[in-house]
């Protein structure tokens, strides 16, 4: 076994684990600036996680092993996903483990268990969150697949490393198919990560909660793991977008690439954070039954991307 892929693999996992809370911190910071508030700093989410790890766990009386197992599983899935997506380098020892479709399914298994955990304690909130989350997921999945389909038409592959290589090395042309796919992907990423306008991660108002409703009963280290995993999920979706649409600069075969890749990654995430904040501050949260239209348009964009590939390219 070669050492290079292994080293980058480890570097990448560590980078994701640490950068994910900082990325959230960055998003919150920009949001604060835009809304004229003072921010708590870049490292506040990281401090929150550490604080939660030291807190006592309060379990509902009725909680079964599923409730206790879910945080570990969700975290495990996120770490595995962090090991698979070519964030710093396309040459990872686990890169072959999953292609884009498997990756979507990995997030699906985390969601499946989170939804079960929401049902486990037997409160109305948990059930409501699970029900809505699964509804949104089932509408975003076809759009996601369509976006993958479009990208795979261009790259002739669903393997993420291959997509990054093909698109990164190809001539720099504006492909309408990829532009549509990117638009679809952004909408999907917003829905999947429970951001405004689909869900509001900062709310605890009963009627607007989706993701928060499912994890309402979590506390202590369980909550820390879940929060950390959901930060990683946002980070990973951002990197997924980078891999598929802006892969320039991702390292390939040597350790020398890594520092450049790292700097470029930070720069890209810097922009991604600002774009996300602009979307979130510009829009109001929509009614739950408007979400199908939102995701329907994502599906439409992805389909348009596929059609424009066949017609224009």
């Amino acid at each position: 076994m070669k050492t290079y892929p292994l080293i980058t693999e480890i570097l990448q996992i560590v980078a994701v684990l640490i950068l994910a809370p900082i990325f959230i911190g960055w998003i919150r910071m920009v949001k604060c600036w835009l809304q004229g508030r003072t921010s708590a700093g870049l490292f506040q989410p990281l401090r929150d996680i550490i604080k939660l790890f030291y807190k006592e766990v309060v379990l509902a009386e009725n909680a079964s092993w599923i409730f206790r197992f879910t945080p570990y599983l969700v975290f495990g899935v996120s770490v595995l996903a962090a090991a698979i997506i070519p964030i710093l380098s396309t040459d990872l020892s686990l890169a072959l483990t999953a292609d884009a479709i498997v990756l979507v399914a990995l997030f699906a298994i985390a969601r499946f268990f989170t939804a079960l955990a929401g049902m486990d304690i037997g409160t109305a909130f948990g059930g409501m969150g699970s029900s809505r989350e699964m509804m949104i997921a089932s509408l975003s999945e076809p759009a996601m697949l369509m976006a993958i389909f479009t990208v795979s038409l261009v790259a002739q592959s669903t393997s993420l490393a291959q997509i990054a290589l093909v698109i990164g090395h190809g001539p720099f042309i504006l492909r309408p198919s990829l532009a549509f796919a990117l638009l679809a992907f952004v909408l999907i990423a917003i829905a999947e990560n429970g951001r405004i306008p689909v869900d509001n991660p900062a709310t605890h108002l009963e009627l607007t909660m989706i993701h928060e409703a499912m994890i309402l009963e979590y506390s202590g280290r369980h909550l820390a793991l879940i929060e950390w995993a959901s930060m990683m999920k946002l980070f990973l979706f951002a990197s997924l977008g980078i891999v598929a649409f802006f892969p320039w600069g991702i390292g390939e075969g040597s350790l020398k690439d890594i520092p450049i890749a790292f700097v470029l990654l930070i720069a890209k995430l810097f922009i991604a954070g600002i774009v996300l904040v602009l979307i979130e501050t510009g829009l109001a949260k929509m009614r739950i039954f408007r979400v199908p239209e939102f995701l329907g348009s994502a599906f439409l964009f992805a389909t348009l991307g596929m059609l424009s590939y066949f017609i224009l390219e």
Binding site: F69, Y72, L73, F75, G76, V77, V79, L80, A83, L94, L96, T97, A98, D99, I101, V102, L106, Q156, S157, T158, S159, Q162
Partner: peptide
């Protein structure tokens, strides 16, 4: 290069991180 999946590593990976 087209697509690959390893159920074994997914299983082992999740299990070991957990």
């Amino acid at each position: 290069e087209r697509a690959s999946y390893s159920g074994f590593i997914v299983f082992l990976g999740i299990l070991s991180v957990v």
